[in-house]
Design a protein around this nucleic acid. Structure first.
Lengths: 141, 141
DNA sequence: TATTGTTATACTCTATAACTATA
DNA sequence: TATAGTTATAGAGTATAACAATA
């Protein structure tokens, strides 16, 4: 894959490689009849613990109105539970169910395999450096 | 914007930040009635010089069939020229027109402003390191 | 009055299938 | 037979507007 690397901006490279990562996730997750965003919801709940729907939306970068359908599907499949926050009854508290956590574990392995293939062209120290830089940028954006 | 940074994979961070970069590009380019991919086509032609449509597709990561409409719009606006490759008449050679190059120059400035804002949370040496790592990864994927 | 979640909807982006013209 | 470009179209993803319940 040849890219306009010489004059490409950082944002362009992020968008370009992000789309590629998404495509690879997509193909893998399709076997489980899930989209990348569904996996992102599961992953964010595993990281943050039970969280309000809006918090989840922020974490995965999906607008709250588009998060509704994502959660609906996961809820129908029994992978996440919906609860009402007693302190603020407007809020829905999402949490991983047992089956949700179990599936997430298996998905994570497959995702790591797919990503390893995509990042294989970069030596290990550089892969770690890239991950670190992306994490720090993500925390500020 | 809080992110599931701790357990996020590199691919997730790429997709997440790539989508954010695309959103910011989008808002800026909308003033010129262009989409991110249109700008990417202009940028790739500026980098590679006259190029076959399929080469452009590879560079910007858009499927050739979806590139057709992108080029149609740019061609209608007189920003890119379509020519036929004499050596292989199946091929369309795309090139920047004068107005295309002129508009690209102005767009590039605005894009750089938008991206600077997104990357502001990262110190300059890290921004350079990130750009370098992304470039090298892009060359291998 | 502001915020959380929600619906309906329109729009954009991406992918599946198949055609044409050249090679 | 294979490849470059194209069309049509369905599906997935995203954004605009507005609403009900609660704060």
């Amino acid at each position: 894959m040849i890219l306009a690397v010489e004059t490409a901006t950082t944002g362009f490279l992020l968008a370009r490689l992000g789309a590629e990562a998404r495509r690879r996730w997509s193909r893998m997750l399709a076997e489980h009849e899930l989209a990348p965003h569904h996996f992102a919801v599961l992953m964010s709940l595993d990281t943050a613990g039970p969280a309000h729907q809006q918090r989840v939306s922020d974490m995965i970068g999906v607008d709250p109105r588009n998060t509704v359908a994502l959660v609906d599907l996961l809820h129908r499949r029994g992978l996440v539970a919906r609860g009402v926050d007693a302190a603020d009854r407007r809020r829905t508290v999402l949490s991983l169910t047992g089956p949700g956590a179990e599936l997430l574990g298996r998905l994570r392995e497959q995702v790591e395999t797919v990503e390893a293939a995509m990042l294989a062209g970069l030596p290990e120290p550089d892969r770690r450096a890239l991950h670190d830089l992306l994490s720090r940028l993500a925390a500020t954006v």
